[in-house]
Design a protein around this nucleic acid. Sequence first.
RNA 1: UGUCCCAUAGUAUAACGGUAGUACGACAGACUCUGACUCUGUUUGUCGAGGUUCGAAUCCUCGUGGGACAACCA
Length: 546
Amino acid sequence: MTEEKSLNFIEEIIEEDLRNGVHQKIKTRFPPEPNGYLHIGHAKSIVLNFGLAIKYGGTTNLRFDDTNPVTEDTEYVDSIKEDIQWLGYTWANEYYASDYFETLYDYAVSLINKGLAYVDDSSAEKIAAEKGTPTTPGQSNEYRNRSIEENLTLFKEMREGKYRDGEKVLRAKIDMAAPNMHMRDPVIYRIKHAHHHRTGDKWCIYPMYDFAHGQSDSIENITHSICTLEFIPHRPLYDWFIEKLEIFPSHQYEFARLNMTHTVMSKRRLMQLVNQGFVSGWDDPRMPTISGLRRKGYTPSSIRTFCDKIGVAKRDNLIDISLLEFCVREELNQTAPRVMAVLDPVKLIIDNYDPDKSEYLETESFPNQPEMVRKVSFSNTLWIEQSDFMEEPMKKWFRLAPGATVRLKSAYIIKCESFKKNADGQVTEIHATYLPESKSGADHSGMKVKGTIHWVDAKNAQSAEVRLYDRLFTSENPAIEENFLEHINPDSLVVKQAYIENGTAAKPGAHFQFVRTGYFCVDKDSGEKLIFNRTTTLKEGFKPKE
RNA sequence: UGUCCCAUAGUAUAACGGUAGUACGACAGACUCUGACUCUGUUUGUCGAGGUUCGAAUCCUCGUGGGACAACCA
């Protein structure tokens, strides 16, 4: 039985490199910028990079791309590390681009010495103007012909803090008429008198991404540097620096980033959701962040499975969020203990059950492990779901209705005898009679009922706050809408005051399946008062027809 | 009027010149003390036109469509 999974294009490249002896071992890296929280899109990259190294016996470095001190912070470093570990991965080394500032500086000097870099005194505006447009070539300026000596002196003075922010930059001297805009003498060093989260005030010049990333890969001997599609036009530059600097030839490969329906993924938009209070924070369970998904009840393996299933390719994609939900259901169905909870309670009174009596009934906690059982309290007064009763049942209605019989899960068969409504027409109380001989596990009634409903003993229940989360956006692809904020789902969070079986061992992070209603996870804020977050619903098989 | 990337069921992703397959979704049925799970079945696809070839989703050309690139961001 060979379960042969086809290779993605990166795996094909790696296998060919290994086969041809281009590399003996592969090295990958995950290079986040510590300026935000990781999201499910990053998870795709993490699973790819770490997964490749594991599959082919290589290693993966965690490298923080911290070349812009004004946006970066250790707060993000910590959360990123936590999320990667939570996902189940261990990095071989923890590095920072800032570890290489001295080396990078030397690289820049060597470029100057080769006549391949120059100091430009122009303003940012002038440089942008001279760069041309994608369809018109750029123009060079008077600084392009400065002597090597002058460039050396100026660059040294930049480092020494002799100039203010924006007064000068170091540029690579390539080709102002190149059809690829990134090759039109890109800026490689800029002056920023800013405090860096790691190097403090040691530097006032910082390398740009293009002058840091590839070289960092090279310094670490990264064999396969995997990034997203938007870096394709940077690749010629990536290769140019490595070639001119004559350093280890790392290679860049690009794959399509993850997009998901009913979700936004860009840091900018996610930041807006947080800052404008549409969600409670970066770890709000509606956020596609790793911390949000974790709080919502997603497990590391369900996220890994998801990343595995979506594949890796180069075409733009929009993955249906139902695939993510499928992955977590598939796992939780096996691992989450069942428990009964009633989210929209209505009282059910069993008229022929002794009001002074109560009993404990056995019920299974895992349907596929019949030996895993627990006892649930039962009496003449129960909570059941409002939605399990219909005054005038539709066709194919298996649940409760006047005169209808139904099985109370793990208890008795009951027959609805009457009900009460309030002035608003809302059902407030349902009366039923039960069949004593229909007790679950010892059913001698000979009756067959179509429906089974869940319940909680009203005389012995605990209350809980249950947070029902739904997709954050009603639009399938909010990112392409004019104003994505207008497409926020007003019902993305509905809070219920529910009843749950007494004695449920609900520690923060614990997963449960509320029988017939979905998967839930105990929130981190849960304490005296239990708080549950809905991870996802059960697949809905009942679809009423007109 | 540039350069680059991409194009296979609704959504993703395989098929590496030789029978277009898989997953999710949808639909139908079986089972069911969760209308869940499980099982069975159905549905829908190679962007277009040429060319090469015994044979093209695959190679070539030209279209068409989508995307990326003009931060002292990454």
